[in-house]
Design a protein around this nucleic acid. Structure first.
Length: 934
RNA sequence: GCCGAAGUGGCGGAACUGGCAGACGCGCACGACUCAAACUCGUGUGAGCUUAGCUCGUGUGGGUUCGAUUCCCACCUUCGGCACCA
């Protein structure tokens, strides 16, 4: 008996050795092709989780495989070290965020080393290090110079009890309550910094240069939204506030009869008339709480309130009421719309519900005019004359229903006015819009072409129905007539009507002509919108990179000169939950001098979104803390150009799907902006992307401390060794799908590695019998397993690669007595070690050394299979009768179709199932099967 | 509501381009070793039946095909994304 497999001893020893030898140091090598393999960096939360192992160790295996394939592989690691939990720890436990973060990093580095991954630790980058965030700030200044950074007022979630702004993930539940105290969260407007990511929206929708999963492409496409072309038009309130709206239908501007602002629109406060404030505030509160989440039905009932002021429609001077309603989203367009109920479905529903006037301004191509003549409203003879004039109608219970061409409608009006009895009216809708009223003094024709005319019409109608009508608008009245409904509303393009000078403009020119017209008058201009909005990067927090901006009373907003970077985070701050960045109360930080005029000035006290740090970390790894200790200018580059030129872009990125729409869009934006800065000459940061799934708890639920189903990698490493944990994580599920943990299941990989150990080291008493046939079988299996594992690694199918190696282990076990020590045997075990090395690096290194092979196995070339050796000599032909398997034939590979068919038809089992019938057809699939059809 | 992914033994999961369903592993059963247990080794393991064999079986129902887990249509369930986009 020789010594048993002892992972604890082996793993520690080799990890030390590799580190001493710099085995995984990735340096520029012009001879070998480079391969930048990147896996998402962790947040230093304190403990390495099994999820980190699940993300990192298969990536490591693939990176190791690429290295054995001859690539110069860079596989770096770092920490995304700014962020909220550090600050919470400071508030709750009084630990400084820096101290908390750095001690977590220290611990996680140790834990990560136990994975035996090929990280090049000399390229580690930690985003909260001033040598790192100096460059994050540098990027901010660059984007500012390019006009891609700007400031505007925007809403944040705010907890009135904790008196603090909240990040999105701190707002819980459908009722939007604070994570810490449960108080209902409100929105608060603050002036904040944004990046113009929407300038790149069109380009971000182009995925032609990257091989990313369809799922991610779909999610990003969804997130960015389609291109909406239209115009920004400026309205003014009666008090003179400019209110900008975005519309895709500027040609319907003359039909705008009201205006709607998003409840959280910054102007709502000022525009609300005093007597409407209580209603406004109540509505705002309700809207703030339900926004975004659970807006279940798209066609749910419209809600909204009038806020007591009016705006002027710039094209026709009409005074239109201003409402707030939650169907207008602050996050799209300008957060305000013009309500054109005649040609927008939502506006139509809203106007109908709240009794707002609806004025048609676009004709629908080919739509008829309709009219209903009520029984008893006209003198006798109308029907006869209509008939004579060739105007079709249907009579139902004495009423006439007419569906006419526009020309017929014009004649109809002419005729009908003669027959209309005093005290009655007739309306014409669709291709024509008018009301004919008759009283003792005569007949009046009122076209429905403005809100003023609409008022006249509805008051006439009220008068004629005795004032008892509760219909508030003409359209409400018309909507009651089933016969009219299909012509009352439409959203098609068509000839403009009731639109002043632009009336008569045909549908195909309406939009562009209107935009030109608006532009000439300075009322509006062409604009494009996406669902994607500009990236808000301000955080009212301490633990982030300070935004390098200074506010001077004399010079305004002044960027910190590049030479003065970094703007350091002061260490001595109070972590009181005040609602604003603690930096605001740090006098030493806050007060500074203006770089331009030297006068007194204050610093921006917000810090940057941590997604900024992670948008360029893959470049930071190439030359961590570049130019540390040296002053920098705007001409400098944040990365060593030589390293950047050699390694970038990332060839393979791996990480969780949860970053599909945030990080992975931001980092694409960053790279495109860097390209426009002249820093890189490519468009996309990561050529290939692969998303791994998630390890669930044994109860099939997401792991969480509260559920008590968390699996600790440290405990597993102690019990089984890192190699076993690695192999199990790659074996138990498809990597892209993930699955539930199985504490029994890990025994399989554990036994597998035990077996590999003893297969190779336990001598077999028998001398190699070395029969030629068995050696050939083993060689065939050896080359087959090389092929299988290679193909599986190419496609990230770690689970089936390991299954293939286990199967190979089973063959080795069977063949050991016959072949131990023979050349075929030695080839087999050496191959097995090489194939297994990326998965279980320690045990393979150890066994490789014990076999007397040259150090290190991880520097060896990946084995190649010989297709001739891998080819089977025999084939198994499946014999079916009517598609059902009835027999199997073991035949030499070179058996001809005729021979195979005749052998099949002679088979006893086949004959029995044929039951004497003659085969009608014999299907032959070479090398696979014969199907006899009767 | 729209878009996307997935449904296979007791469990995790295999199955190339339409060709032996259940590889590999866990678990379980029986046997060997052991005073015993664990470990280890061997054998078996989709279900049913009238068990040399036959029938059924990949969410459900249809279709195409000599042949369907795989392709097509409809539906059910689960998960993910988006959801009044002016």
């Amino acid at each position: 008996m020789i010594d048993r497999y002892n992972p604890a001893e082996i793993e520690a020893r080799w990890q030390r050795q590799w580190e001493e030898d710099g085995l995984y140091r990735a340096l520029i090598d012009p001879v070998r092709p480079k391969f930048y393999f990147l896996t998402m960096l962790p947040y230093p939360s304190g403990e390495l989780h099994i999820g980190h192992w699940y993300a990192m160790t298969p990536s490591d295996a693939k990176a190791r495989y690429m290295r054995m394939r001859g690539y110069n592989v860079l596989f770096p690691m770092g920490f995304d070290a700014f962020g909220l939990p550090a600050e919470n720890a400071a508030i709750q436990r009084g630990v400084h965020p820096h101290e908390w973060t750095m001690s977590n990093i220290e611990k996680m580095r140790r834990q990560m080393r136990s994975m035996g991954a090929m990280f090049d630790w000399e390229r580690e980058a930690v985003s909260c290090d001033p040598r790192y965030y100096r460059w994050t700030q540098w990027f901010f200044l660059k984007l500012y110079e390019m006009g891609l950074a700007y400031r505007k007022e925007s809403a944040v979630d705010f907890c009135p009890r904790c008196n603090t702004t909240l990040a999105r993930e701190q707002v819980w539940g459908e009722d939007h309550h604070c994570e810490r105290c449960g108080t209902l969260v409100i929105k608060k407007n603050l002036t904040q910094w944004f990046f113009r990511i929407t300038d790149y929206a069109e380009e971000l929708l182009d995925f032609s240069q990257i091989e990313w999963p369809d799922r991610v492409v779909a999610m990003q496409t969804n997130w960015i939204g389609h291109r909406s072309e239209g115009a920004d038009v400026t309205f003014h309130s009666d008090q003179g506030h400019p209110i900008e709206v975005f519309t895709t239908r500027p040609d319907t501007l003359w039909g705008a009869t009201f205006m709607v602002l998003a409840p959280e629109h910054p102007l709502v406060e000022e525009l609300s008339a005093p007597e409407y404030r209580p209603v406004m505030e109540a509505y705002r509160l309700q809207a703030a709480r339900q926004s975004e989440i659970d807006r279940t039905a798209a066609d749910r009932e419209k809600t909204g309130v009038f806020i007591g002021s009016y705006a002027v429609n710039p094209v026709n001077g009409e005074h239109i009421p201003i409402w707030i309603a939650d169907y207008v989203l602050m996050t799209y367009g300008s957060g305000a719309i013009m309500g054109v109920p005649s040609h927008d479905e939502r506006d139509f529903a809203f106007a109908l519900k709240f009794g707002l006037p609806i004025i048609p301004v676009i004709l629908r191509d080919g739509a008829p005019a309709k009219s209903r003549v009520m029984a008893g409203s006209t003198d006798d003879g109308l029907a006869v004359e209509l008939h004579g004039a060739g105007i079709p109608f249907q009579a139902v219970d004495g009423a006439l229903y007419l569906t006419m061409t526009p020309v017929q409608a014009d004649s109809f009006v002419h005729i009908a006015r003669k027959y209309l009895r005093p005290g009655h009216w007739i309306e014409v809708v669709g291709a024509r819009w008018l009301f004919i009223f008759a009283d003792e003094d005569g007949v009046e024709i009122v076209p429905l072409d403005s809100t003023a005319a609409e008022k006249v019409i509805i008051s006439h109608c009220h008068a004629l129905t005795g004032g008892a009508s509760d219909r508030r608008t003409a359209m409400e009245l018309l909507w009651e007539v089933e016969f009219y409904r299909d012509v009352l509303y439409h959203s098609d393009y068509g000839e403009m009507i009731h639109s002043g000078l632009l009336s008569g403009t045909p549908g195909d020119r309406a939009k562009s002509d209107t935009i030109t017209w608006l532009d000439e008058r300075g009322i509006g201009k062409a604009a494009v919108n996406y669902r994607l909005h500009d990236w808000l990067i301000s955080r009212q927090r301490y633990w982030g990179a300070p935004i390098p901006m200074i506010y001077c009373d004399r010079c305004g907003t002044v960027p910190v000169p590049h030479e003065e970077l970094p703007v350091l985070l002061p260490e001595d701050v109070e972590f009181m939950p005040t609602g604003e960045s603690p930096l605001k109360f740090h006098q030493g930080f806050l007060h500074t001098t203006c770089p331009r005029c030297g006068g007194p000035a204050t610093r921006e006290t917000d810090t940057m979104d941590t997604f900024m740090c992670s948008s360029w970390y893959h470049y930071a790894y190439l030359s961590p803390y570049w130019k540390a200790g040296q002053p920098i200018t705007s001409q400098d580059t944040p990365v060593d150009p030589t390293e950047l030129d050699y390694w970038a872009p990332v060839d393979q990125y791996t990480g969780g799907i949860e970053h599909a729409t945030m990080h992975l869009i931001y980092t694409r934006f960053f790279t495109k902006a860097m390209r426009d800065m002249g820093l890189v000459d490519f468009d996309e940061p990561m050529t290939r992307l692969y998303n791994q799934g998630m390890v669930l708890g044994e109860d099939h639920e997401k792991m969480s401390k509260s559920r008590g189903n968390v699996i600790s990698p440290d405990v597993l490493v102690k019990a089984f060794g890192a190699d076993t944990v690695r192999v199990f994580l790659m074996f138990f599920a498809r990597w892209d799908q993930g699955g539930p943990w199985d504490s029994q299941g890990i025994k399989g990989p554990s036994r597998f590695l035990d077996d590999v150990w003893s297969l190779i080291l336990d001598p077999h008493s028998q001398s190699p019998a070395g029969k030629g046939g068995e050696a050939a079988v083993l060689r065939r299996k050896t080359h087959q397993v090389i092929r299988k594992v290679t193909e599986d690694l190419e496609s990230f199918s770690f689970n089936t690669a390991i299954a293939a190696m286990m199967e190979f282990r089973n063959s080795l076990r069977d063949l050991k007595p016959a072949l131990f020590g023979s050349p075929a045997w030695n080839e087999a075990v050496e191959t097995l070690l090489l194939l297994l090395a990326p998965f279980a690096p320690h045990i393979c290194e150890e066994l490789w050394a014990r076999l007397g092979k040259p150090y290190s196995i991880h520097r060896q070339s990946w084995p190649m299979w010989d297709p001739q050796l891998a080819a089977e000599e025999m084939m198994t032909l499946i014999v079916q009768v009517n598609g059902k398997v009835r027999d199997r034939l073991e035949l030499p590979r070179d058996t001809s179709e005729e021979q195979a068919k005749s052998l099949a038809l002679q088979s006893e089992r086949v004959l029995r199932h044929l039951g004497g019938k003659e085969p009608q057809q014999v299907v032959y699939v070479p090398g696979r099967l014969i199907n006899v059809v009767v």
